[in-house]
Every structure is written in C-alpha cells, then in structure tokens.
Amino acid sequence: MKRAFTALLFFAGLIGVWHLLAMSGRWSPVLFPAPMRVWEYLVSAVEDRTLFEALGVTTRRLMIGYLIGVVTGVPLGLITARFQWASDTIGVTGLGLQTLPSVCWVPPALLWFGQTETAMLFVVVMGTVWSVALATDNGVRNVPPMYVRAARTMGSRGMHTWIQVILPASLPFIVSGIKQGWAFAWRSLMAAEIYVTILTGFGLGQLLNFGRDLNAIDQVFGIMLVIVLVGLLADKILFSPWERFLHRRWGTVNA
C-alpha cells in the first residue's frame, strides 16, 4: 500500500513538473506539448480506434517474430554448446551477428521481401534469435558437471539428461537471454516501423513517424508513452513470472 502510494506520488509529481515546464512558455507548444494535449490525443486515438489497431498490428508482429526467435534460438544454443563443430561455425556466426545492431537488417529485409509483413518478421527474428542462442549456449556451458554426473548415476542418459538436467540447470541464463532478446526485438521492430511504411498494417512506429510528418508533437509524445507502457507491461507479463520462479527456487536474483 505504501509502495503504491509512493509510486503514485512520484508519477503525479512527474506529470506536474511536465505541466509546469510546458506552461512556463520557454518552449513553443509545437515542440513541447503539455500533458493535457498528449492525453487529448490519446483519447481521440482510442476513440477513432487507430491506437488499438496500431497496438494490435505491432503486438502481432512482435509476438510472432519473437516466438520464432526463441523457439529457434534455444535449440540452436543447445546445439552449439553440445557440438564443437557447431560452436566453431554457427556459434561464431551468431556471435558476429549479435553484435550487428538489428536495425541493420531492415534494408536487406526490404530488398528481399519488399514492404511486407515478412520483412517486419524477419527483422524481429534476427533481433531475437542470436542473443537467445548465445545465452542458451553460455548457460549450458555453465552447468556444473556435478549435476550431470549425479543424474547419470540415477540412470539418466542422452536426451533425458538434456531435457531434465541441462536445460533446467541453464534456465537462469536462458531467461536473461530471452529477456535481452525481447529488448532487441522490440527496438528493431520500432526502428523498422519508423523506417518504412507497410501497407498491410500501421504499427506504433508508423504512428510515431506520421506524428513527425504531421508536425503533431502531441501524437509523437503520446505514442512514445504507449511504447514505454507496452515495454513495461511485457516485462511484467512475460518475464516476471519466470524471474519469480527462479528467485523462489534458486534463491538468487541473478537471472
């Protein structure tokens, strides 16, 4: 209760300061909107449904791409950790591509797939898959050999050891990897949506860019606010349960 109150006070204060700054007249309202104007934009965007449509488009792209990224990234990491040849080939490739800012995938994606949903998906997948794979690989390599030995004495072999021991033992690393993958996917999708208009659906990034085109600073601020909220919400919904589980079981926060 006290925590909620503190948080409420903080955000009320933040909006208050914002309001005062906007009212001070130091900056033109064309460049720095008052909170009320941003709120009015958001209400109108909700009323004419553009906000929900954009949210839906963006979330769908993100979720599908992210899911593909995780579902391929985890096995890829397991393979590179297990086989030296895979580590020397796929592993090195992954390490290199992970250092590549994922927005760099936008130009080739547009050339290959045109201004389509596939291009958007491709960018998100590329942003996700490598960091997930590297984290999984790293997690597997950090599994104490003692766990595997203990499992073997109890009759665990082959796939059973991988699924029942090595995978759960590397969970702390994998969770931090999929969280990082999410951050990359989210950033790259926003960059891609701002960069190019896809006619099959306007996402949040596109709304943000239209805001700039229309010189509508209230729209720019409003959409930025929504993007922050989506990020926060995703963190709470997607990752908090895992992190709570890890914290409960392992007794540590190093996820």
Binding site: M146, R149, V165, P168, R249
Partner: peptide
C-alpha cells in the same frame, strides 16, 4: 548410488 556433496542437488527441483 552415489551421495555427492550438497552442491549436487538440483536447485530447480
């Protein structure tokens, strides 16, 4: 069966 040192218990279970 081997009884290892305590560090061999599985923390995820």
């Amino acid at each position: 069966m081997v009884m290892f040192q305590e560090s061999a218990l599985f923390p995820w279970l």
